[in-house]
Design a protein around this nucleic acid. Sequence first.
DNA 1: TCGGCATTTCGCTAATCTCCGAAATTACGT
DNA 2: ACGTAATTTCGGAGATTAGCGAAATGCCGA
Lengths: 96, 96
Amino acid sequence: MLDECKALANETRLSILEWLKDPATHFDDRVGDEPLGVCAGLIQQRAGCSASTVSAHLAVLLRAGFLQATRRGQWTYYRRDEARIRAFAERVHHDL
Amino acid sequence: MLDECKALANETRLSILEWLKDPATHFDDRVGDEPLGVCAGLIQQRAGCSASTVSAHLAVLLRAGFLQATRRGQWTYYRRDEARIRAFAERVHHDL
DNA sequence: TCGGCATTTCGCTAATCTCCGAAATTACGT
DNA sequence: ACGTAATTTCGGAGATTAGCGAAATGCCGA
């Protein structure tokens, strides 16, 4: 619970989770039908901060369990882990 | 959403919210039937940190909307704002 | 009115977080 | 094998947060 809340306690990270709910509308290129998710570079571009900063944010969300990542060649694709996000929401509802 | 998550991103504050779910079992004295809540002093005692630190934590939870406070004489009683906590849980469920 | 108690506010230090650029890593194409 | 591109890791600067004790505030009883 603590780690999850810490992961959500940042504007940029909240935005990333939001964008990944519907990649088609939030990322210029047509990546909406990409089941693997969105690659780090596009997220960085959208977030408007450095690659290293975005990488750190993605790592936090990953460790908290909100994201899944797939390395495909030189790209790493990120997508929401809907099951674990829902599980967290349930936990907030029952434990908080 | 951001402010709420920031408020929850701290061990002590999460504990305080937990304790206030059932004051009778978490605070020695018989304050379980006190509708006004638990006074700051008891919370400080339970948290094991200084009065000023606990006061700051309570202020954060109050500003985030998770607590309500009532000043009664020289004591300030704190209790959970269940409606707003539930509303936050709903928002997590729908927006996250 | 005065002294004492509960709480908050004020300064300050230590720890944590955020962000960056440089360097390292990994993969691709030639 | 070499050069380039995507991403991560490293090291450090600046901002935010957590914690404390001292001082201030508000309230009560003598």
